[in-house]
Nucleic acid binder design. Structure first.
Lengths: 175, 175
DNA sequence: AAGTGAGTCAGCCGATAAGCCGGGTTCTGT
DNA sequence: ACAGAACCCGGCTTATCGGCTGACTCACTT
């Protein structure tokens, strides 16, 4: 258990200067923090300076629509997502549902002096977070899972792996 | 009940300066006020300064056409919606029906000194509001639900989630 | 004139958020 | 291998804030 907890965050964050105008953040790697009894958890300390720099330590958390996990965006990246969401035709029921879920549940987070953020209880419930968490960097966002849930999901993925390459989207992908 | 009530409003409002001309408000997050026995409820206190600034605390409420909930717009945003509505071809029966519903039921709201608004009883009936409410920020408007109704609706959403990606509008959406 | 409905004001209660600190563990560098 | 430092976690503390309620007043209506 020791090997699994602690500092598995093998990937330092990376702020990439795209061109002389744009900055963008590229998150990756995994980290396993714990949720304290007030619903807070600490972000990896190596990320903190970068986040302070990139988004003034301001994040936005919302639910994921089809998995019991939370999505955590640096604020600038969230703004982009939100703009996309709001530009969709709002008379479409599916669109409205998506907007309700994502925007309605969105919450601002600010790192405190100890590098922690406080998760609203409704979001903790959605992701069924208990004590051990799994935080994954996925490009412009984090995904936050309950550790046990993520473990199960990961196992399930492995079982389905054989059928994965049947999807057409992946046919042309070369890694 | 304790964990669900109280200050779930984690989102401060946001007035975004679009360019040097336009201002726009971007509402998000969830809040759970109560309806008092006079049919009033309080808006989240963090929003009040911004609303005072943005629309002189003037809102417009109307019904939603396909859900038992109410739509609450800051006045400037309502003006836009109204203009769009009136520019539609009014010979079309569907258009006329939409105009009747939305414009006919619209009512002006003004925050009182305690940051509350009084809902017309006809609108309270439409949304079947009892005591516990759910107020969601959705970009340029709020949606106001009876808390129990919203809970049911949300649960239903979660069950239907598997069909979500079948919609073409959402195919190209990358979050 | 009385009653109803709306606006104002004030106080209470509860919840939450932020700060602080101490202990234990891990990691790093020498 | 050892020492130092950093960091993570958890508990406690306080204080601030916001929401709710109830009472009072005013205006309008019937």
């Amino acid at each position: 258990m020791v090997g699994e907890s602690g500092e598995l965050w093998t990937q330092p964050q990376k702020i990439v200067k795209m061109d002389n105008q744009t900055q963008s953040i590229m998150l990756r790697g995994i980290h396993t923090p714990t949720l304290d009894n007030k619903g807070r958890f600490a972000l990896p300390s190596r990320l903190r300076p970068e986040l302070a720099d990139y988004c003034d330590s301001e994040l936005v958390v919302t639910v994921d629509v089809d998995e019991p996990c939370l999505l955590i965006y640096p604020k600038p990246d969230w703004e982009i997502v939100q703009a996309k969401l709001m530009s969709l035709p709002s008379l479409n029921p599916q669109v409205r549902r998506l907007q309700r879920l994502l925007m309605g549940q969105a919450a601002d987070l600010k790192l405190d002096s100890a590098g922690r953020v406080l998760l609203p209880s409704a979001l903790r419930d959605h992701a069924r977070l208990s004590h051990q968490l799994t935080l994954m960097g996925l490009g412009n966002k984090f995904e936050l899972w309950d550790a046990a849930t993520w473990q199960q999901t990961q196992d399930a993925y492995r079982d389905e792996m054989g059928q994965l390459d049947s999807s057409e989207v992946l046919q042309d992908l070369s890694l």
